[in-house]
Computed example of a mutant assay.
Amino acid sequence: MSRASPAVLLRMSAVSFQNVSKTYATSRGDLHALRSVSFDIEPGEFFGLLGPNGAGKTTLISILAGLARATEGRITVHGHDVHDDYQAARRQLGVVPQELVFDPFFNVREALRIQSGYFGIRRNDDWIDELLTGLGLADKATANMRQLSGGMKRRVLIAQALVHKPPVIVLDEPTAGVDVELRQTLWQFVSGLNKRLGSTVLLTTHYLEEAEALCSRIAMLKLGQVVALESTSALLARAAANVLRFKTDAPLPADIAAQARITGRVVQLPALDARAVEHVLSLLREAGVMPEDIEVRKADLEDVFLDLTGSGAPGVPSAPSNKVSA
């Protein structure tokens, strides 16, 4: 097989999705999980893939990782087709899955050595030690996998994905259900790999503030189709200028309730400027509603997400926690 020239390799995308479609046959007819999804991720990018439940994110990653096959289209990793040249493509990838999967018969260091062996890597202890230290697992190196907490098992999964130093790291909701310490440790370590080694990172996450802080570019999926593909800064520029947030126990006037996102006592509304804020407050006063803890905040990525995916009122986030379904 002919080798690509260095100039071609420099221009090659780290990951390329080319008109990828996936259709499942069901008793109710065909289910189109993906519909002609196309975008490229460049070498060294920290890239976010976002979307609500059923958007097709996990299906797309499963095809990328070789766990499913596309009905149509093609995916390449550094030029290697994930189907026709799967061995070379797999070596380029390190995938952290959503599920906790582990072998209960080995300790942490043994699990990482075995994972190294899958890729034909011997005498990998120096890098394993760096992974253990960087992910806060150094004191668990000899612990059996069954003895670890859920958060520690998650750290081992991340170490296993990185043990062969893949140029492309795929993180499928890696911080779902984990504590703040692990989230900080993970992002510090992965961001270091991205900056120090030029690793390409593809991230899906429930926490949109993570994507906003980490990702330079984002694709949003809805019903298997790409509805946005832009830099994070360009997406944020789409958002309404501000969001008015307050608390109340009283029923809202109908015209306010129609555009509000209400979570318990918390009400959030788009507020383009000071005049819009004053208009809302005056309507509340006329209706006898006394709002508490009034604040105006800048719109964020979650506002854009809800606007583009139709998951809630335009410009208004779904919950104060910044956590959404993915």
Rank of each mutant, 00 (worst) to 15 (best):
G56N: 13
Y118K: 11
G73C: 13
L306H: 11
V156R: 04
A14S: 15
V163D: 09
T200C: 11
Q92V: 00
V77P: 07
S16Q: 14
S216N: 14
D172R: 02
L235Q: 04
E45H: 03
A65M: 08
V266N: 09
P314V: 07
V96K: 01
A254N: 01
D179H: 12
S321N: 12
S311W: 03
A326E: 00
A250N: 08
K195L: 03
K165C: 08
G44K: 03
T76E: 14
G315W: 00
R113Y: 03
V170N: 02
T185F: 02
V101C: 01
V77K: 03
L10A: 15
R155V: 08
L157V: 06
G66V: 11
Y86V: 12
V267T: 09
R183Y: 09
S216V: 07
A319E: 14
T204C: 14
A211I: 13
A70G: 06
L50K: 00
T309H: 14
E209N: 13
A241Q: 09
V168M: 07
A276M: 04
L244Y: 04
Q87L: 15
S2T: 10
L50Q: 02
K298G: 07
D129Y: 05
H279Y: 08
M152W: 11
L301F: 09
L229S: 08
A240D: 08
H32C: 00
I121G: 02
G198I: 06
D85W: 01
G51A: 08
K140T: 12
K195H: 09
T175E: 07
G79R: 14
M1A: 12
A287C: 05
L49Y: 05
L157G: 15
M290A: 14
D307Y: 00
I294C: 07
A228T: 03
V170E: 01
T185Y: 03
R35A: 06
A299I: 01
T26F: 05
A161K: 04
S27K: 14
N322E: 07
V280Q: 06
E72W: 06
I75V: 15
L269V: 10
H80C: 06
R297C: 01
L252M: 06
V37N: 04
G177E: 08
I63A: 02
L93T: 03
A240P: 09
E302W: 02
V201W: 09
G48L: 05
V226H: 00
D103E: 11
T59R: 04
F17H: 10
W187D: 05
Y24K: 10
K57N: 10
R35G: 03
N53M: 03
I158F: 01
K222R: 12
V180T: 15
A7F: 02
F189C: 14
P317K: 15
G120Q: 11
S199A: 15
V201E: 10
P270W: 06
L31R: 07
G44D: 01
L272K: 09
A161M: 07
R245P: 00
A239Q: 09
R74K: 15
